[in-house]
Design a protein around this nucleic acid. Structure first.
Lengths: 186, 186
DNA sequence: ACCTGAACACCGTTCAAGT
DNA sequence: ACCTGAACACCGTTCAAGT
């Protein structure tokens, strides 16, 4: 029989509970102390598993991007792929409370992860005929637009006013389509 | 002779000093207590002039948008206006430390101000032939793209990696041009 | 009208010490 | 290896009291 290591506490558990806390209390309520309490542990215990709070936020942001990526199906051409990815990211960002603000703050967990992430996202685009430069530039444009839109959309009083004048999701969609359509082919 | 009211402390002074503090210490260093100290006053004194910290951040964000607006010159058509405004906003956001993160967090000072702001920005676009709906939608698209891009650009490790592969300002410019070009005319 | 002093209820993080 | 207890240096905000 193998000696099962007591799992005690896991980085995955921490991130999962952090999302629950975020849903319940919002970004301002997301403190290390409250997070620890939910995990039935004292606050300093978290620092054995994690360097600091920024790292927790970074892992959460990485999860949100990863979910968007995995929801993006195969596509016939790079424009279709970018449109799908943009919609998936928008969905991923809005399906967590304060998701956009979190991603605007949270740095990626590590430089190496950032590079890996960029590579993973660029891959399907290069497979569809773009060169590396364009794959990165176009991906950056779509992420920027989507992140910015969702941030804007979450911005309280402005939103309440604008909602009377337009359908947010529809306007986002047509904006995204416009952007992708305008991107140069090669 | 008129009785001159002692100016004591002004909302404008508070915002101006808040920008100095932001430049010096970054967004995490921007606390009400430090801000008060710079103004040679105790922290609670600020709360006579201001409701809370969020209001200070909101006024700062409003200043950044206003600067972008006032830097945008007259234009021949709405596409040219939007391109100019996007570049001006990008400049305005990057010319303050943590400017993008600040605008991603800061709500506008009040709902009424948000409406006024939206109106002011939509005005030059309707003057150039767009209807109200499109003026708002296109403006929202450009702001979103610019805010998102600048946020992305400020995101530490990711930036250091991407900088080797592309010129940030140039890629922003062509992305903005692509977006504006793709926006429907009527 | 405008500001201070003191206090309340929190933070993130470190570090010795426990097991 | 993993966690607790106690502490440090902060926060934003309220409120009585001063002038």
């Amino acid at each position: 029989m193998v000696q099962h290591p007591m799992p005690s506490l896991t980085r995955d558990q921490i991130v999962a509970e952090a999302f629950n806390l975020l849903e319940a209390e919002g970004l301002e309520g997301l403190s290390m102390r409250r997070l620890a309490a939910r995990l039935k542990v004292q606050a300093p215990a978290l620092y054995w598993h994690v360097n600091d709070k920024a790292e927790v936020l970074g892992m959460m942001a990485a999860d949100i991007y990863a979910a968007a990526y995995s929801r993006t199906g195969p596509a016939q051409d790079w424009r279709e792929w970018l449109r799908q990815f943009g919609r998936a990211l928008h969905l991923s960002l809005t399906s967590h409370r304060d998701g956009a603000r979190l991603c605007a703050i949270g740095r990626p967990p590590s430089p190496t992860d950032a590079i890996a992430q960029a590579g993973r996202i660029a891959a399907p685009l290069t497979a569809l005929g773009l060169n590396d430069q364009q794959a990165l530039a176009h991906q950056a444009a779509v992420i920027s637009f989507t992140l910015g839109w969702t941030t804007f959309e979450a911005n309280g009083p402005m939103r309440d006013f604008l909602r009377q004048m337009m359908d947010f999701d529809a306007t986002f969609s047509t904006g995204l389509d416009s952007l992708v359509k305008g991107l140069p082919d090669k």
